[in-house]
Write a protein that binds this DNA or RNA. Structure first.
Lengths: 205, 205
DNA sequence: TTTTCGTTGCACACCGGTGTGCAGCCTACT
DNA sequence: AGTAGGCTGCACACCGGTGTGCAACGAAAA
């Protein structure tokens, strides 16, 4: 036991272990993204590992999904707080938000499917903070008049980011217009006029 | 064997059988709407019938789902062809379409969840004709300038009715603003200005 | 009355996924 | 050299859902 410094210089063993764990998580996200019903066995072999090893890192399937969700929450919260802190107009902020959220939404698109049935409770619970931040952003847009008010902020934000995830979900079928389509569509849905929406994404494609 | 008339006056036995079959289908739609992973046993008991009886009408779970999907296609096609045939402006036609499609979309919201995994192939295949009619309507709107052209008609129509189903899917969580929310949101997404959208749904709430 | 047939209530086999136990192996740490 | 610990490759039990087989019941149809 050495290493008195701040950086937790892990031993080569521990590093390898963490690599395995991270690889399992990454692969699980990819595999479950393709097929939300994939089993632990599928994930294991895709990660170049035996099923038993996966259970070594995650005692149950729920543990795996929970960890995945926590990752998603961390990443999305980071983007959202940052965007929310900026003083840009809400619609411009939204564009930046989607641009940065898109890769995340796409990677974690499986959560949309897993939201239902068996893990839904857990996922929904963990996603709470994200929902709030999202609603804040939309509310800000509504108060400043750049977003429409046909729906309450909470509901509108849910629908809007549901759509972003939905587009991420159906992306593979049609090349990859994903990010742009998601941005424009969500802007329109938020009540931003088409011309303004096009201009905004033109600035930041 | 009597009954030479056009109307197939079924015997009381056949009528009872059909009633059972129809009840199973209706109940299956409701139960699967609540939980897409419900088993044949759940459906059976909800229909006041034994599991074995369900298998008597539908040899396999896939048969049940297929029949359900065929029902959905029939209903949606009817609405779409009728709306498509009218000479109203595309955006007005869209309002009528959603108004009439809404109950159907809500009833069959389970198909959104079942679209993935195991039955996805079958469902997607059967839904082909609906997709075409939908794309026609959107294309008409784009050509006449009432719908935005930021996305090709085929893709836009998919996203738009995906959203309608998505809202139908998350409806129960927030009272039931469903139909109106779905209509306005989808109109906005199609590029219809907010004022125009509000006016349109005002005409036909 | 006799037959037909949908329904019932068992039984059963089958399957796939989950989670656990354990001995062995190989490698990095001590 | 010795040991600790992650990975392996089995083994196994368990569970829940699927689909089938069959004898029996009861009511409508012949």
């Amino acid at each position: 036991m050495c290493n008195n410094g701040v950086v937790p210089t892990e031993s080569s063993r521990a590093r390898a272990t963490n690599e395995t764990r991270d690889r399992i998580l990454d692969v699980a996200l990819a595999v479950l993204g393709e097929n939300p019903d994939a089993g632990m066995g599928d994930i294991a072999s895709a990660a170049g590992v035996v099923r038993r090893t996966v259970y070594g890192h995650f005692p149950s399937r729920l543990d795996l999904v929970r960890t995945l969700t926590e990752r998603a929450v961390t990443e999305m919260t980071a983007v959202l707080t940052e965007v929310n802190a900026s003083d840009a107009a809400a619609d411009a902020a939204w564009v930046g938000f989607i641009a940065r959220l898109w890769p995340v939404a796409y990677r974690y698109r499986v959560l949309l499917a897993l939201r239902r049935g068996e893990y839904g409770e857990t996922i929904h619970g963990l996603l709470g903070p994200v929902d709030e931040l999202l609603a804040d952003l939309v509310k800000r847009g509504q108060d400043s008049g750049v977003f429409a008010q046909h729906l309450p902020a909470g509901m509108l934000s849910q629908v809007a980011y549901g759509v972003v995830f939905a587009i991420a979900d159906t992306d593979l079928s049609n090349g990859t217009p994903g990010a742009r389509a998601a941005t424009i569509t969500s802007l329109l849905m938020l009540g931003v006029p088409e011309t303004r929406a096009i201009a905004l994404v033109g600035d930041q494609p």
